[in-house]
Nucleic acid binder design. Structure first.
Lengths: 211, 211
DNA sequence: ACCTGAACACCGTTCAAGT
DNA sequence: ACCTGAACACCGTTCAAGT
């Protein structure tokens, strides 16, 4: 569709957000700058302001893009517990695919309407599963919290369990293997399975008779 | 000990970190500045650099203060599951007491040696409880992830489940009560109980014979 | 209508100069 | 040794001026 030779295209909000996502992805964490964004778009920094109100707005649009990748269709075809686990995996995956956005996203308040739309679907499914109304928001909130915390942990340049000293923390030292992504994924799985398992047990205790 | 009249005291790293904690607490989120810190200490901004290498270092020391409040003594007197829940509560509480520090802490990598010291204690307790070695780090990591995610959620100026439109999201709308701290605390409790419950069930399946 | 350069008020940080 | 003012390279943002 676009000619192979680079042609100066119209600058639009769309293209700004796209370039922002690319820039955040390329550059090291926390160095997302309007000056760099402008250079990438081949315009001057002030020009950005003729298409977009400010930097916060751009960040919010980037967040929307990431959140839009979260898939909650599992609730249409699976029981609530399996669907919740699938949703959690999709949620984590969306952020892990854009790890550089996470610091930005935790600093700025969340307001993505895409997510609220999903809450409605999930709430309905949980209600139909027999969860008492006053616990429904709590149930998907705790799953979401675990996902966000895991994502933070996943992208953190942690090294936290690698003390330099030879003698200290013998137990810990003997347990820590390679801190690769595979281990992180295994940890996430252990967590989400346990949490859903606990929730399943709770529902048995607190369930209102299913409709 | 100190005279009641304000006497210009020696500027030390200690006092800088203390002032930083106070400043972060007073000022709105994300406006922690060396200029403001200097003014509060009644010195010029460059003077800070004769006591401390840079801003990151100050932030790291502030984090250490917060982390130092986390109490893992429960492992000395309670079974692993109850102790893990107590630790999680103490962990969350330390950060909730300084909510303004959370954005700073998630942006910067974690390197608090205070926490690693606790990992060693926890790992030992989990080992004695019969957890297989290759799952021990995962177990306290998932709890930690849930805590961090919850804390983010707790301090976020969320409003996320309050759509303006009158007709949209009927189920969700009917479930959302007042978004007060009490509800957040209840949510955290539901989460930590469920997670620990799931972990307890898992241990039954995977336990090596206890020593 | 869209874009620009110059300018503003701020950052964190360096450094020569003062005591 | 400790502290300072001036300066540097950067921010995000505004605005009058150009096309």
């Amino acid at each position: 569709m676009t000619p192979s030779r680079a042609v100066r295209q119209h600058v639009t909000e769309e293209r700004i957000v796209e370039a922002a996502l690319a820039l955040i992805h390329d550059e090291p964490m926390g160095s997302f700058t309007l000056a760099k964004l402008a250079k990438r778009l081949r315009i001057s920094a002030p020009t950005i302001y003729s298409h977009v109100p400010n930097k916060q707005y751009i960040i919010e649009r980037v967040r929307s893009r990431v959140v839009a990748e979260i898939d909650c269709s599992a609730f249409e075809r699976l029981p609530w517990d399996e669907a919740l686990a699938e949703w959690a995996r999709s949620y984590a995956n969306a952020f892990v695919k854009h790890p550089e956005t996470i610091p930005l996203l935790t600093t700025n308040p969340v307001q993505a309407p895409e997510l609220v739309r999903q809450y409605e679907i999930i709430a309905t499914a949980l209600q139909e599963a027999g969860w008492p109304p006053h616990e429904i928001v709590a149930v998907f909130t705790v799953v979401e919290s675990f996902v966000m915390g895991s994502v933070l942990d996943l992208v953190a340049p942690v090294q936290m369990v690698q003390p330099a000293d030879g003698e200290e923390y013998p137990v810990l030292r003997s347990l820590v293997g390679e801190a690769d992504t595979l281990r992180a994924q295994h940890t996430f799985e252990l967590g989400i399975e346990s949490m859903i398992d606990g929730l399943r047990a709770r529902l048995v205790r607190v369930a209102v008779r299913p409709i």
